[in-house]
Simulated scan of single mutants.
Amino acid sequence: MTHPSNQAVAQNVPLSVWRNPWHFMAFGFGSGTLPKAPGTWGSLVAIPFMPLWQALPGWGYWLMLGVTMLFGFWLCGKVADDLGVHDHEGIVWDEMVGMWITLWLVPHGWQWLLVGFLLFRFFDILKPWPIRWVDRHVHGGFGIMLDDVLAGVCAWLAMQVVVWGWHWV
Score class of each variant (00 low, 15 high):
L126R: 03
W156L: 09
I91K: 01
V161H: 02
P38H: 06
F123T: 05
E95R: 07
V138R: 06
L118M: 14
D82W: 00
F49Y: 13
P51V: 12
W133N: 05
A10T: 09
D135N: 10
P130G: 11
V17I: 15
W53A: 14
L65Q: 09
I125W: 14
G98M: 09
G141C: 10
T40E: 12
T68W: 11
L75H: 01
G143N: 05
V45A: 09
S5A: 13
A37C: 12
V67L: 15
W100L: 08
V9A: 14
M50C: 07
W166C: 03
I131Y: 10
V134E: 12
Q7F: 15
F123H: 06
L34S: 11
V45M: 11
W112K: 05
D82Q: 15
G60C: 11
G90W: 00
H167S: 08
H139E: 10
E89D: 09
F27I: 07
H108A: 15
G58A: 13
F27T: 01
L70P: 04
V169P: 01
F29H: 06
M99F: 02
F142E: 04
R132D: 14
G32R: 00
E89Y: 01
W104S: 12
V153G: 04
I101P: 00
H23E: 09
S43N: 07
W59D: 05
M25A: 15
W74N: 03
P51W: 14
V134M: 08
A8W: 05
E89M: 04
L52P: 05
F71S: 03
W168C: 06
V92T: 09
M25P: 00
D135M: 09
P57T: 14
F24K: 03
L126E: 03
L126C: 10
L63V: 15
L103T: 11
G141E: 05
V9S: 08
G141K: 01
L113T: 04
V17F: 00
G66N: 06
G152C: 11
S31P: 12
G66M: 12
P48K: 11
M145T: 09
W41T: 03
Q111M: 12
W62K: 10
P14W: 02
S16Y: 12
